[in-house]
């Protein structure tokens, strides 16, 4: 395996970057979409049923099927990486809408009431009070989504989309153990990097969490 990695270092790196895009960009898009949707889901229980129920239905669809069905919906070709980006964004939103709604719901009512009493407008209250306090829970959901995304993206190798999953399909066809192991380890390392990165960012933007811990 080490000699395989040594021999293909630059190829591995460039595929890892592709993989990171396919898994990472949907995380950002998914988070951006989930925040307003999660906020909406807290407004009314019927909205919650529609948003959370609908997203969990989408979550039910197996990834390969979703990749394959994308061209029908967005008029791309079957080998277009955009299919993967959109499909992964759907999964991320499906996971995060519920997390965001629960995280906002977990902000203590006293804090919310205090903010209202001090004269925060609803929008400023969301960005200034509720969202920051919800960060730890949302971050936990984001970590689950990140690890899951990295694993799912590799499936797209079956459709010939360029990323780390190529080493799995190619290694299997050539019966080349070192290549398959390289693919698995590279995926795990990438997932780990995402996980550490999200934790680090969370740590930086929630200094009060550290004060509690010490």
């Amino acid at each position: 395996m080490l000699s395989f990695i040594h021999g293909h270092w630059s190829d591995i790196l460039s595929r890892a970057i592709d993989h990171a895009w396919l898994a990472g960009l949907p995380l950002l898009l998914g988070l951006a979409i989930s925040l307003p949707l999660g906020w909406l889901a807290r407004r009314a229980s019927w909205l919650r049923v529609i948003l959370v129920g609908g997203s969990s239905l989408l979550y039910t669809i197996p990834s390969l099927a979703l990749f394959v069905l994308m061209p029908i919906v967005v008029k791309t070709t079957i080998t277009d990486p955009v299919n993967v980006i959109i499909a992964m964004t759907i999964y991320t939103v499906a996971l995060l809408v519920r997390t965001v709604a629960d995280a906002l719901g977990a902000v203590s009512d006293e804090t919310r009431q205090a903010a209202i009493a001090m004269g925060y407008t609803p929008i400023r209250r969301f960005f200034g009070v509720e969202l920051p306090l919800a960060v730890p829970v949302i971050s936990a959901g984001l970590r689950v989504a990140a690890v899951s995304n990295v694993a799912i993206v590799s499936v797209a190798a079956l459709l010939g989309i360029r990323q780390l999953g190529f080493y799995l399909t190619d290694g299997y066809q050539l019966n080349y153990w070192a290549e398959v192991w390289t693919g698995i380890v590279a995926c795990l390392v990438l997932a780990l990097i995402f996980d550490v990165l999200i934790q680090a960012i969370t740590r930086v933007i929630t200094p009060w969490q550290r004060a509690v811990a010490s």
Binding site: V150, A151, I152, A157, L168, V180, I184, L188
Partner: peptide
Amino acid sequence: FRAIPSLGLLFVVAMWFV
């Protein structure tokens, strides 16, 4: 275990058994 790509797991086990 959930972090392991299932495609990789599938191929490794299949290669061992084949």
